[in-house]
Amino acid sequence: MSASPIVRARGVCKAFGANEVLKGIDLDVAPGEVVVILGPSGSGKSTFLRCINHLEAIDRGFIEVAGEQMGYRLDGERLTRLSERQIAVQRRKIGMVFQQFNLYGHMTVLQNVVEAPIGVHHQPREEALRYGRELLARVGLSDKENAYPRQLSGGQQQRVAIARALAIRPTLMLFDEPTSALDPELVGEVLATMRDLASQGLTMIVVTHEIGFAREAADRVVFMDGGVIVEQGKPEDVLGNPSQPRTRSFLSRFV
């Protein structure tokens, strides 16, 4: 890896009570890289994604995003926990797309998209609106800017959620099973939008069950099971010729 990585995770452990969900994850993501994390339900892949922007605090190890340790600061030899406000500031360079879309229900589509740019990033209103409309055009929803989320299909809502995450000009985009809550006929439009982003050099980490998307759009596929990374590599290697039996048995269910 030539450039310094956008994400650097080392020895990440996380337990919910007695349930150890992550048991030592090491992962580097280079700028512009598209990493797809696959794995069975309960493998810890969504939890790991939520640890990257500190929606979940980790128990051991550390995660760095763009050179800053998430949630903590190292002064000399002393590691201090950051305040909630400082963590909020750290999160502002990371965009996130959720399984359940989570659009703000009381705001129109355009209001959803410009809320963070205007209110959190203090961009000039006109500039934010212009860029917001441009992004809505990019996801093919220009005609919906005054609609409320409830009036849109699931696929449209998820495309708005993607535009909303892009509006903050993120250094890193996290996708948490973006197509799992969609009707089968709506999955395609969301995946097409994501493929488009992947080809434009955005750094993306995608947790998904879409093997086809991993094959076409990923630079690297990471296979997780039981809270550890079982194997990773180029999509054609991991998906075409998996070296681990667990990967093979997982993939065999999709053929």
Binding site: N53, L55, E84, R85, A88, V89, Q90, R91, R92, I94, M96, F98, Q100, N102, Y104, G105, E115, A116, G119, V120, I168
Partner: peptide, 22 residues
């Protein structure tokens, strides 16, 4: 829905702003 708060947190909003705006 708790997802609303979580999303606003992911976008780096402060606690006061999440309460007021979302």
């Amino acid at each position: 829905d708790r997802g609303q708060t979580e999303t606003a947190q992911a976008f780096g909003m402060t606690r006061g702003r999440i309460l007021r705006r979302i």
